[in-house]
């Protein structure tokens, strides 16, 4: 029993960290109808940001979030200006090539500047753990989980409780109608993209005490995030959070019971089952994209 509890706990904790990556991905898709293949690279940049601030100036990775988030937000604005904006309305393959190209570019830029060396952050709390009964959880994992969930919920609250958040939802539901309300659709696209990638950057910074960083680190994370986004329902923020927790548990349980190599196979099996049985995902709205534009 305690063992089962332990496995589920570590699954939930890891899943929670994924949630922050997945909500941004689902938001970009829901609002811009763009699949952001470069999403993992913004996370990678966030990890390097946290790593270098720790390595050079001994700044705690959790504090580096306050620098990483504005920096990646600004980068997001720039990327929207230079790339994303130009692909809106273009054929889907154009969007795929553009964001995939950006992903490859950022990976190789990181490889050139920072080499392929694996780097890890070690702090005073590395290796320490909280204990509750028989269940142990590493301190950085618990803190990262908490920060990730708080940020994901903050995003959700922003979308539901502010005028601009409502405007973002309006654009997602019908772009033309939103424009007819006086909403600057292009500005909504730009801000949504920047907010979402800043979330990926924040996720990278808070993941730095838990995972090692290499230039290709974003890839494995973003693939899991894609599974989460589809499972939760394309465009659904709460769906992405719950699906992230679920995938974390599946990964952890299967990893323990069968073997780590099977964990990925297991959640891809879940992924395919969802596509067959409930293509709109757990919290998606069937045909939501039908309302997009006239």
């Amino acid at each position: 029993m305690d063992l089962a509890l332990q496995i589920v706990t570590s699954g939930l904790l890891t899943g929670g960290i994924y949630a922050l990556l997945a909500v941004g991905l689902t938001l970009i898709f829901g609002v811009l109808r763009v699949v952001n293949f470069a999403h993992g690279e913004f996370m990678m940049l966030g990890m390097y940001g946290a790593y270098w601030m720790w390595a050079l100036w001994d700044i705690d990775p959790y504090l580096s979030v306050f620098v990483v988030v504005p920096a990646i937000f600004a980068l997001g604005l720039l990327v929207d200006r230079l790339i994303i904006r130009r692909t809106i309305g273009a054929p889907e393959v154009t969007v795929v090539f553009a964001t995939l190209g950006l992903s490859i570019f950022l990976q190789n830029a990181a490889l050139t500047v920072w080499s392929a060396d694996t780097r890890s952050v070690t702090t005073g709390y590395t290796g320490t753990a909280f204990t509750l009964g028989e269940v142990r959880a590493s301190v950085p994992l618990v803190v990262s989980f908490g920060v990730a969930l708080v940020l994901a919920l903050a995003l959700w609250a922003f979308l539901n409780n502010t005028r601009f958040g409502k405007a973002i939802q309006a654009v997602a539901q019908n772009r033309d109608a939103a424009a007819l309300m006086g909403i600057n659709v292009q500005r909504v696209y730009m801000m949504t993209y920047a907010i979402a990638v800043a979330g990926a950057g924040a996720m990278g910074a808070i993941a730095a005490p838990v995972f090692s960083v290499v230039p290709r680190v974003g890839l494995s994370f973003v693939i899991t995030a894609f599974v989460i986004v589809v499972l939760g329902g394309l465009g659904s923020v709460p769906g992405a959070v719950i699906a992230a927790l679920l995938i974390g548990v599946v990964q952890s349980v299967v990893g323990f019971m069968i073997g780590a190599a099977w964990a990925e196979i297991a959640y891809f099996a879940v992924f395919m089952a969802v596509l067959v049985l409930r293509p709109q995902g757990l919290f998606g709205r069937r045909g939501a994209e039908v309302y997009q534009g006239a």
Binding site: R163, K166, A167, Q169, A170, Q173, N174, D176, A177, A178, L180, M181, G182, I183, R285, A288, Y291, A294
Partner: peptide, 22 residues
């Protein structure tokens, strides 16, 4: 617009408030 194009997944009040976005 033709076909009304209300925002289907927002409340009626939210739709109205968005009407005064400008």
């Amino acid at each position: 617009p033709e076909g009304r194009l209300v925002f289907p997944f927002l409340s009626v009040f939210d739709n109205l408030r968005l009407g005064a976005y400008a």
